[in-house]
Amino acid sequence: MDALLKGYELTAARLLETLQSYGVLEIDCLGRPFDPRVMHAVGVVEDRGAPDGSVVEVCRRGYEWNGAVYRPAQVRVARRIGAAGPQEGEL
């Protein structure tokens, strides 16, 4: 079972390397300030531990391809309680 898992991990790593060699890069989000250019906020978390406006979870990884956003990352972002205005619940 472990060996099988290891095998998959190696394959996944190889795949990522290959993608990188073609200019595909994962967008680095976790812990960074929210950047609407490359990230799409799909949720808000009231988290006292994390700085306001920083990414606390990546729901779907985003990628850049040859310097342009191929698919934005879907992220959850920390907001201080009280900092949020009216939640209109629109997606």
């Binding site: 799909v42 808000v44 997606l91």
Partner: peptide
């Protein structure tokens, strides 16, 4: 698109 990306996070903006 950039504005849409922040809609959920900053609906008041």
């Amino acid at each position: 698109l950039e504005a849409r990306h922040q809609q959920v996070l900053y609906p008041e903006r």
